[in-house]
Amino acid sequence: MTLTETAYAKINLALHVRRRREDGYHELETLFAFVDAGDTLSAAPADEDRVTTVGEFATGIDNPFDNLVAKALSVLPRAEGLEITLEKDLPVAAGLGGGSADAGAVFRLVEQLHGLPDDWQTRAAKLGADVPCCVRSETVIGRGTGTELEPIESDLTGTPVLLVNPRIPLATGPVFKAWDQIDNGPLPEGTARQITLEGRNDLEAPAITLIPAIAKVLEQLGKGQAWLTRMSGSGATCFALYDTLDARDAAAAQLTNAHPEWWTLAGKLR
């Protein structure tokens, strides 16, 4: 028996950085959302845990046995092992929570086979700040380091979205270090759409200082019929939201023609 799960690409529709904490982490307020596409994980029972990574971005993972798939398996008690093949189609260090999404998919695979322990959220948080939200992969508000989740009904489900990455990896640490440490205010209140429209990404400006190509991506996305364009997470992936599939697809065609070297993914919000 082989099970398959999609590790849905995570985007931050809004990301407000409030302050740097004494523990070195940053206090965040963010609206997480997920695209209906991403990496693919296939799992089958085995005598011991094994992870194989394939796909376009497999080489971006330095040690496949030290990635978040293997780490997620190590924190979930089971009576038998799992052999997992990870097809890595999302770019690494891209602001899409790729590794966290992979870990979230592992939690769902284990849940189907064995169920999850009562403290699964704590176990997920120890793997990374984005992992708890990636387990369910639903639109949700995150606070603290991103692990304190608050449900929100999404009025954006089904919204056409285009993701674009200039194929330049960008580590999270340097972006936070370049943040100006100015608190520009809390996450807006309201529906998911209202929060998105009135919110911002406080890491966009510092990321652009490190990777100027991000500004070029945003400029190109702004030429289409998107009702919003923004960088996701700590970058360098940017996204655009559209009212129709035709508008998204036209923008995707125009962009890939102008910049065939960039990575793109067209989907819809879950």
Rank of each mutant, 00 (worst) to 15 (best):
S42K: 11
K223M: 05
K88I: 09
E204P: 06
V175G: 11
G224I: 00
R108K: 09
E138W: 00
S234K: 07
N184T: 04
T59W: 05
V54C: 12
L76Q: 14
M231I: 01
N257C: 08
R18M: 00
G24F: 04
A105F: 05
L163V: 07
A101M: 02
W262T: 12
A125D: 09
R200S: 03
G55T: 11
K88C: 12
H26A: 02
D246P: 02
L170S: 14
R78P: 14
N257D: 13
A205D: 13
T59I: 07
P117N: 10
I182A: 07
V54D: 13
V131G: 13
R193N: 01
L156P: 09
F57N: 11
R270Y: 06
L31K: 03
R18T: 00
A105G: 12
R270K: 12
G222C: 03
P174S: 09
L15I: 01
P132Q: 01
L31Y: 02
S137N: 07
K88W: 10
H114R: 12
P91H: 06
S42F: 00
C134H: 06
I152G: 03
G144R: 04
R230P: 05
N12E: 09
P117T: 06
N67P: 14
I182P: 00
A9L: 10
A101R: 02
E111S: 15
T139P: 11
V161D: 11
G235Y: 11
V92H: 12
R143F: 00
S232T: 15
V164Y: 10
I214R: 11
L113H: 04
Q254K: 08
A251T: 14
L197T: 06
Q220N: 08
G55C: 09
